[in-house]
Nucleic acid binder design. Structure first.
Lengths: 121, 121
DNA sequence: CAACCAAGCCTTGCAATGCAAGGCTTTTTA
DNA sequence: TAAAAAGCCTTGCATTGCAAGGCTTGGTTG
């Protein structure tokens, strides 16, 4: 790989980090709206199913913040013969916030796609 | 408006701020790839055409950073009888980065929309 | 029994960015 | 002359992603 293209890769990587901000919170709430998940399951699940890589150092502080804000709640239960797991579910408040987020996301994504549509090279 | 819904509005607003991170850089490069723009024109243009509200306190530091990174370049010219304008255009490096960003955005947006598609309530 | 590994949770400190608030200059207009 | 509008910029704060590392539990292996 040339020096130029590796610098470009780094820039894209830095950009993707910023791109996640806010999106992750949305994605977590969206995932929990379908069924309860425990933390580690969110990490592996999002990586595999949605191709969104979420490191543990990101997910646990985020889950903690969402709990403090009353958007989700947790229950500690014994796992499948392994270490105990903390299962998270949406609260009523979390559902309401998610419902408000969806049109915001759709509007923004549509705007970006509109600009993308005009991109001809 | 009730106290609850105004708190929800504030939370959505805070979230939208985070959602912009990264997206704005992408949107600016995308906009400049079509034709040159001056700073204030980006503010008004994105608000009107793309419904993306970009305050001046956001756009000017961002344009400065993109210039420092060699992604865009500027030329100061007299405006339409008003104050002088700084016109920005993409550099070759900026075009290359934009080209690398597009598939990243499309992949992420597709992942989120995939999760959204499974959302039934 | 001791050593090891995987699942699973958490904390700390840093890096990066949006933006409110305010200030500056130039030109037009009342 | 005063005021408003176009247009550019800076400072400081708040927020968030994440790399790196540590902790616990239970199973597996020698």
């Amino acid at each position: 790989m040339t020096r130029q293209s590796s610098e470009l890769c780094e820039q894209v990587a830095r950009w993707e980090v910023q791109l996640r901000k806010g999106i992750l919170e949305f994605v977590i709430l969206l995932t929990l709206s379908r069924r309860e998940h425990y933390g580690f399951e969110l990490v592996t699940g999002l990586t595999e199913r949605a191709a969104i890589d979420v490191p543990e150092g990101t997910i646990y502080p985020l889950l903690l913040r969402l709990s403090k804000d009353g958007l989700i709640q947790s229950e500690l239960r014994d796992g499948d013969g392994g270490a105990p797991r903390k299962y998270y579910t949406l609260t009523h408040k979390g559902s309401a916030l998610l419902a408000a987020m969806i049109p915001s996301w759709q509007k923004l994504a549509a705007s970006v796609d509109g600009l993308l549509g005009g991109h001809r090279n």
